[in-house]
């Protein structure tokens, strides 16, 4: 994490979501973070056009978990040519829902107004530009802070979820012991409920709760002599399992 972030909360570097070529000179790059329960979209807007840009706005298309801006984009000053502005947009999860492919895909529409100056007429004119961008968010954005399942409920739920709903993933070449892994995972609200050591393997039983109430149960297996972890994920909505696995990969490697 960076300055001022709780330890363990990894934020991916910004990537370009809307290249300047596709948006008449406006480049949008961004990343996502969950900070003390608040979901944020961190954006950088760069003006690569000759005109000044003003009056920025963003809308989201329907998406799998109802992500939506919780307020307007707070960009109060014009963006001059070659200028970049950084802004954090808080998000809610009460927007309209439509299952996306992939599940964590987010399409957005961005609008800005280009202000052109004409020396000949000694005047300015404006034209509105709308562009569609696309990005994907880590599912950990939706892992809530009260995702530590009651231990008895965990055991009953684990038994109750059929084995067809279990997915297994190998996480290769991780050199962390189980305590370090537990701490890192807790930083993104993956909670360890129990730990057992059987035949030289540490087995961690963990739970995650998504903003929409879906619970995910996991078993993380590690051996001191083997840097490859084995992750088993059980969920009543098994389509989320591979996206939960991606979060394990991301946080354990960073």
């Amino acid at each position: 994490g960076g300055v001022g972030m709780p330890s363990g909360s990894y934020v991916s570097p910004k990537t370009v979501w809307l290249p300047a070529m596709k948006a008449k000179g406006l480049e949008i790059s961004g990343t996502f973070a969950r900070r003390s329960g608040v979901i944020q979209m961190d954006l950088s807007l760069t003006n690569k056009a000759m005109s000044v840009m003003v009056d920025f706005a963003i809308q989201f298309n329907k998406n799998s978990f109802g992500l939506a801006p919780a307020g307007p984009l707070q960009i109060l000053t014009p963006l001059s040519p070659n200028q970049t502005i950084d802004v954090s947009l808080p998000l809610s999860t009460v927007g309209p829902i439509m299952k996306m492919e992939p599940l964590n895909n987010l399409q957005f529409t961005h609008r800005q107004i280009h202000v052109h100056a004409t020396q000949e007429l000694n005047a300015t004119f404006e034209n509105t530009q709308r562009d569609r961008g696309n990005c994907q968010y880590p599912l950990s954005l939706l892992f809530v802070e009260d995702g530590k399942m009651d231990r008895q409920v965990f055991l009953a739920t684990w038994k109750d979820i059929p084995s067809e709903n279990e997915s297994q993933f190998q996480i290769k070449d991780i050199h962390l012991n189980s305590d370090a892994a537990t701490n890192k995972l807790q930083g993104i609200n993956i909670f360890t409920i129990a730990k057992r050591t059987v035949e030289g393997q540490d087995m961690l039983y963990q739970s995650v709760k998504l903003t929409n109430g879906i619970w995910v149960l996991a078993e993380l297996r590690m051996q001191t002599v083997n840097p490859n972890y084995m992750l088993s994920v059980k969920c009543r909505a098994p389509e989320v399992s591979q996206f939960v696995y991606q979060c394990y990969e991301l946080v354990l490697r960073n």
């Binding site: 008895q152 055991l155 129990a194 057992r196 059987v198 087995m203 039983y205 088993s232």
Partner: peptide, 20 residues
């Protein structure tokens, strides 16, 4: 007593997963 039973249940789960 309840805690002991829960601890035991987790141990059984881990055992069953290692030696199915």
């Amino acid at each position: 007593e309840m805690d002991g039973a829960l601890e035991e249940a987790f141990s059984r789960l881990a055992e069953s997963r290692t030696n199915p």
